[in-house]
Write a protein that binds this DNA or RNA. Structure first.
Length: 165
DNA sequence: AGGACAACGGTCT
DNA sequence: AGACCGTTGTCCT
């Protein structure tokens, strides 16, 4: 009997990154979350809230392999962000921001043709499930302020520094 | 420079 | 229907 192709069951794992320990969550389709939680317990809580229907098994080695792909080889694996149409549109727009550059919430709103929806864009960016790979950290305020960051402004600052140069 | 405030639109309860 | 937000422009002190 022929062997089935390797199945990628839903997994999650913790691993080091240039910005502290991160948690990578894989669905069968690709990476569905990348977070930089304060502690592992809150990371697990976050997964449970986001994917109450799915059972994930822990695989730190896999997370580590992907971390080196992402942060050392600087490749972007297949992503599988879950969100509303509006959120998908916003997250797609974020991918067009070049490495080492920043843009503003207003410019993203304009880029997706919803210049009046700045506030909603901010909320959608805040809901980005895949930090760093969907570069929400490259979005700052029009007045030059850092804006917000789900995983702490220190991490956002570090990411921008790391990408500069 | 910094604070208060209203208007904005998507999402959740 | 109301409240909450990773915003912003305006109007103050």
């Amino acid at each position: 009997m022929r062997q089935l192709p390797p199945q990628s069951e839903p997994t999650f794992g913790f691993t080091d990154s240039p910005f502290g320990e991160c948690c990578i969550v894989f669905s069968t389709e690709g990476i569905c979350a990348l977070t930089f939680p304060e502690d592992r317990e809150s990371a697990l809580y976050d997964i449970e809230q986001r994917f109450p229907e799915t059972n994930f098994t822990q695989n730190d080695a896999k997370a580590k392999r992907f971390a080196s792909m992402i942060f050392e080889k600087k490749e972007i694996p297949t992503l599988n962000p879950i969100g509303t149409d509006f959120q998908q549109t916003v997250w797609n727009a974020l991918k067009n921001i070049p490495v080492g550059e920043t843009t503003t919430y207003t410019k993203i709103a304009e880029a997706i043709g919803r210049s009046k929806a700045v506030r909603a864009v901010g909320t959608a960016i805040g809901a980005n499930p895949i930090a760093f790979l969907i570069p929400c950290h490259r979005v700052i305020r029009t007045d030059g302020g850092l804006g917000g960051f789900r995983w702490g402004l220190e991490v956002k600052k570090k990411m921008l520094e790391w990408e500069k140069k």
